[in-house]
Measured scan of single mutants.
Amino acid sequence: MDALKSAGRALIRSPSLAKQSWGGGGRHRKLPENWTDTRETLLEGMLFSLKYLGMTLVEQPKGEELSAAAIKRIVATAKASGKKLQKVTLKVSPRGIILTDNLTNQLIENVSIYRISYCTADKMHDKVFAYIAQSQHNQSLECHAFLCTKRKMAQAVTLTVAQAFKVAFEFWQVSKEEKEKRDKASQEGGDVLGARQDCTPPLKSLVATGNLLDLEETAKAPLSTVSANTTNMDEVPRPQALSGSSVVWELDDGLDEAFSRLAQSRTNPQVLDTGLTAQDMHYAQCLSPVDWDKPDSSGTEQDDLFSF
C-alpha cells in the first residue's frame, strides 16, 4: 500500500511530472533526481522514447528462454528487412502500455495491464526491452520488442512496467475491499429498513384510530445511509488515497477476473515476472533518469539497429 499512497501523494503535489519523457535525446524537461521519484509518476504514465523492432507469436506467457528466442527472431526479421526502425513513445501506467508513433502521434497499440504476463531486458541484446501480452483480438500470446538507447534504459522500462503492474494490483485490492464494505453496509441498511417496515402498523389501523404518522421519526431512520450505499452501487469504487486528485481509476471486468485468478494461483500475485536478476534490479533502481541518457562506457552510441 505504500507504493499506492506515495504515488497518489506525488501526483497530487505535481501532476505535471508524469508528462516528462525519457530517452528522447535531450528533449525532456528537468528530471527527478532518483528512481523513487520517477516511480511516483506512474499514475498518469511515464513516457519512454524507443524504437519498435516488431512482434512475434509465442506459445507460453512467460520465460527467459522463451523471450530470448522470440527477441532473436524479431531482431533477425528487422535486420533482414533493412528498413529504419519506427520511433515510438511507450506510455507506461497502472492501466497498461500505450504505444504511439512519434511522427504521426497515431495510436499503435493499447495493452491493458492485466494482459501483460512478462517483461524483460534481454541478456543477449542488452539494449532490447520486450514484453509478452495476450492479444486483445484473440487468445494468442505476442512478444513485442523495442530497441532502447542503452542497457540502462531497457532495464528502466522493464522495472517501470513491473512497478505499474504492482500498483494496478494494489488498486484492485483496495477497490475489492471498498466494494465488500459497501455491499455489507448496503445489506445491513436493508435489514434495518426491513425491520422498521415489519414493526410499522398498517396504514388502515392508523387511520381508524385517528393517529398521525410521525414524519420526524421517519426522517431519523437510516434511510439516507441505505440510499447512499445503493444509489451508486454500479459505480466502481476508487482508492481513497486518490481522493481529490485528477486521476480516475476504473476497474473493468477483465482486470477484476484476471487479478482474482492471480490472487488464487500465485504466492506473490502482485509481482510481474521479469528477466532481471536481483543485481540488475538493484543497479537500475539506483540510477537517476539522467543516467539513462548518458552514453555507455563501451563506446559511442549508434542510432541504428545494427549497432548491437
Rank of each mutant, 00 (worst) to 15 (best):
D2R: 04
A3I: 09
A3E: 12
K5M: 08
S6E: 10
S6L: 14
S6H: 14
A7K: 14
G8M: 15
G8Y: 15
G8E: 08
A10E: 14
A10I: 02
L11M: 11
L11E: 03
S14K: 15
S14W: 01
L17V: 13
A18I: 00
S21E: 09
G23Q: 04
G23E: 12
G24I: 07
G25M: 07
G25K: 03
G25F: 05
G25Q: 06
G26Q: 03
G26P: 10
R27G: 13
H28L: 10
R29F: 05
K30E: 14
L31M: 13
E33H: 12
N34H: 12
W35N: 01
W35V: 14
T36A: 04
T38C: 07
R39D: 08
E40Q: 12
E40D: 15
T41A: 08
L42I: 15
L42Q: 12
E44C: 06
G45H: 12
G45K: 00
M46V: 15
L47W: 11
F48I: 05
S49D: 04
L50I: 07
L50N: 13
K51G: 15
K51S: 12
Y52V: 05
Y52D: 06
Y52G: 14
M55E: 06
M55Q: 10
M55A: 12
T56F: 05
L57K: 02
L57Q: 07
V58Q: 12
V58L: 13
E59M: 11
Q60P: 15
Q60N: 09
K62M: 06
K62F: 06
G63H: 04
G63E: 11
G63R: 12
E65V: 09
L66H: 01
L66T: 02
A68N: 09
A69K: 08
A70E: 08
A70P: 04
A70T: 13
I71N: 09
I71V: 08
I71K: 05
R73S: 09
V75C: 09
V75R: 10
T77D: 02
T77Y: 08
T77V: 04
A78Y: 05
K79Q: 04
A80Q: 02
A80H: 05
S81H: 11
K83V: 07
K84F: 10
L85A: 00
Q86V: 10
Q86L: 15
Q86S: 14
K87E: 06
V88K: 12
V88A: 08
T89E: 15
L90V: 15
L90H: 13
V92R: 14
V92M: 06
S93D: 15
S93M: 12
R95W: 02
R95L: 14
G96D: 05
G96L: 03
G96A: 04
I97W: 09
I98A: 01
I98W: 00
L99I: 14
L99Y: 04
T100N: 14
D101R: 15
L103F: 12
Q106V: 13
I108K: 01
E109W: 10
N110L: 03
N110Q: 14
V111Y: 03
S112G: 08
Y114I: 08
Y114G: 04
I116A: 12
S117R: 11
S117F: 15
Y118M: 04
Y118S: 05
Y118T: 14
C119V: 09
T120M: 12
D122A: 15
K123V: 07
K123W: 12
K123T: 14
M124V: 09
H125M: 07
D126Y: 03
V128W: 13
F129H: 13
F129G: 15
A130L: 05
Y131C: 03
Y131M: 06
Y131E: 09
Y131A: 14
Y131S: 13
Y131L: 01
Y131R: 14
I132F: 15
I132C: 11
I132V: 10
Q134A: 13
Q134W: 15
Q134I: 15
Q136D: 07
N138V: 15
Q139A: 14
S140W: 14
S140I: 15
L141V: 04
E142S: 01
E142A: 07
C143M: 10
C143I: 04
A145W: 08
A145F: 11
A145Q: 14
L147D: 03
L147N: 03
C148A: 04
C148F: 10
T149M: 07
T149I: 13
K150R: 07
K150D: 10
R151P: 01
K152R: 02
A154H: 04
A154G: 03
A154E: 03
Q155P: 00
Q155C: 11
A156C: 06
V157K: 11
V157E: 01
V157L: 02
T158C: 05
L159T: 08
T160V: 12
T160D: 03
A162Y: 04
A162I: 06
Q163P: 00
Q163N: 08
Q163A: 02
F165K: 01
F165I: 01
K166Q: 13
A168R: 13
A168N: 01
F171K: 13
W172C: 01
Q173L: 02
V174C: 08
S175F: 00
S175M: 01
E177Q: 01
E178K: 15
E180M: 05
E180F: 10
K181Y: 13
K181P: 15
R182Q: 06
D183F: 09
D183W: 06
D183G: 11
K184C: 04
S186H: 01
Q187H: 06
Q187M: 05
Q187F: 02
E188R: 00
E188Y: 05
D191P: 03
V192T: 08
V192F: 10
V192M: 04
V192I: 09
L193M: 06
G194W: 11
A195H: 11
R196I: 10
Q197G: 00
Q197S: 11
D198L: 12
C199S: 11
P202M: 06
P202Y: 10
L203D: 13
L203W: 05
L203C: 06
L203F: 11
K204W: 13
K204Y: 04
S205F: 02
S205R: 12
L206W: 12
L206A: 09
A208R: 04
A208F: 03
A208L: 00
A208K: 07
T209K: 09
T209F: 13
T209N: 05
T209S: 11
G210V: 02
G210L: 00
L213W: 04
L213V: 12
L215S: 05
L215F: 07
E216P: 02
E216D: 12
E216W: 03
E217N: 03
E217A: 06
T218R: 10
T218M: 07
T218V: 06
T218P: 05
A219E: 04
A219V: 14
A221I: 06
P222N: 02
L223R: 13
S224A: 03
T225N: 07
V226D: 06
S227D: 12
S227E: 07
A228C: 09
N229F: 12
T230E: 01
T230M: 06
T230K: 09
T231M: 06
N232Q: 05
N232G: 09
M233T: 07
D234G: 02
D234I: 08
E235H: 03
E235V: 09
R238D: 07
P239D: 07
P239E: 07
L242W: 01
S243C: 08
G244H: 02
S246A: 09
V247E: 02
W249H: 06
W249Q: 07
E250G: 11
E250L: 11
E250V: 04
L251R: 09
L251I: 00
D252S: 13
D252T: 07
D253Q: 04
G254F: 09
G254P: 06
L255F: 05
D256Y: 15
D256R: 05
A258I: 06
A258K: 05
S260T: 02
S260Y: 00
R261Y: 08
L262V: 08
L262T: 05
L262G: 02
L262K: 11
A263W: 12
S265L: 00
R266S: 01
T267K: 06
T267V: 02
T267Q: 08
N268M: 04
N268I: 01
L272W: 02
L272Q: 01
D273S: 06
T274M: 03
L276M: 13
L276T: 02
T277G: 00
D280T: 09
D280L: 11
M281P: 03
H282N: 09
A284V: 14
A284G: 10
Q285A: 01
L287H: 00
P289S: 07
D291N: 10
W292E: 12
D293W: 00
D296A: 09
S297F: 11
S297D: 04
S297K: 00
S298C: 07
G299H: 00
T300Q: 09
T300M: 01
E301D: 10
Q302G: 04
Q302A: 04
D303G: 08
D303R: 05
D303L: 07
D304F: 08
L305T: 03
F306N: 00
F306V: 00
S307I: 03
S307R: 09
S307P: 08
